[in-house]
Design a protein around this nucleic acid. Sequence first.
DNA 1: TTTTGTGAATTGCTTCACAGCA
DNA 2: TGCTGTGAAGCAATTCACAAAA
Lengths: 214, 214
Amino acid sequence: MAKPGNVPIPTVRRLSLYLRQLERLNAAERRTISSKALGEALNLSDAQVRKDLAYFGQFGYPGIGYRVPELMQRVRRILGTDKRSNVLLVGTGNLGRALIAYRGFTKKGFEVVAAFDHDRAKVGTRVSAEPPVHVLPMDQLPAVVRRASIRHGIIAVPADAAQTVADHMVTAGIRAILNFAPVTLHVRHDIAISSVDLAVHLEQLSFQVSGRSR
Amino acid sequence: MAKPGNVPIPTVRRLSLYLRQLERLNAAERRTISSKALGEALNLSDAQVRKDLAYFGQFGYPGIGYRVPELMQRVRRILGTDKRSNVLLVGTGNLGRALIAYRGFTKKGFEVVAAFDHDRAKVGTRVSAEPPVHVLPMDQLPAVVRRASIRHGIIAVPADAAQTVADHMVTAGIRAILNFAPVTLHVRHDIAISSVDLAVHLEQLSFQVSGRSR
DNA sequence: TTTTGTGAATTGCTTCACAGCA
DNA sequence: TGCTGTGAAGCAATTCACAAAA
């Protein structure tokens, strides 16, 4: 077993996929799963699955496989999602509002507890009913981060505003940013960034379909 | 220069980022850009930029750098986005509707021209105004794919419906799928898949913030 | 000078293959 | 027998470093 730090980045990405599958297996009341079966469900080799998990400890039982509930808990703990955590979001356009309403975050232990927008006309608007979320003005961001001890922020603003928003988040104490704006953000090295550019994903497909075979 | 096939997968991903930055530079009327400057904007090394581009030809001018408009066109051609293309979407929940309204796709040459939903109550609803898009029933999918010669499909349905939708798409002739459902899809090897699991991205950040340092 | 394009060296990741345990 | 954990081997991607071009 290795201390996180030598863990390959692709391994961390797959950890989330293992967890997703384990949650499905657990819901179906499957008690154990082999690296072979887990790999097949995710289009990975059995060796890959074993090596990935071995970076964090010895969770398997030779001859049996992995115990589903146990491994599920362990992976959650590794990812840091064994406790619920609060998230804030900036930018309440179409995408931002869809993200606030997205049930998948809640299922995984993330709660979007605050939404902010630069546009004063949007401030005060209720943007989610279930847990009521109202749009706040940007200047309240630091106070909210402190009061709700928020470490994760989501950026859903246009490209030209994203860097400024990121700077505000970092100043306020946010440690990790999920960015949906189509720009590369520049932040301190101790701040984690994950970017999702929706158009980029379509371009990738375009390359595979038309680019490759020409 | 190499024929696509030996091109590393990460290189293809970065190609989209180069294009994004080139479009920004072009809009700012910057005429040339060095691999060093392009790399700095995207947090990549200059050698990485040069090597990536060299897989597809010799586009640079020693002592000068790359000519912005020229390289932009070339990268578009490599990605296959030099011509506009039609896209369909299945699943008109919050996320699906946000994706239909997303301007970023249009800017990059993709047009969501048809939306489908399993739920007959949603069929007929207008889900976009600008280019009017009405929700169609699933059984019309094959006909629409044929008539509008659509090759790209977006899946924005719940996890338990995603595989069925993917199967329908493939049967109808779709060649590439962008999947937002939190499941691994199993399709023929000649079908391209790109998956975006929003919760997975938050988990990755969680690991970097809490997982790594514990 | 400045900056590209590219072999060679290096680093990183995945697969192999098998000892050891249930 | 079935399956894990893991060194060793193999493959892939990145970085280095420098000749050649403007």
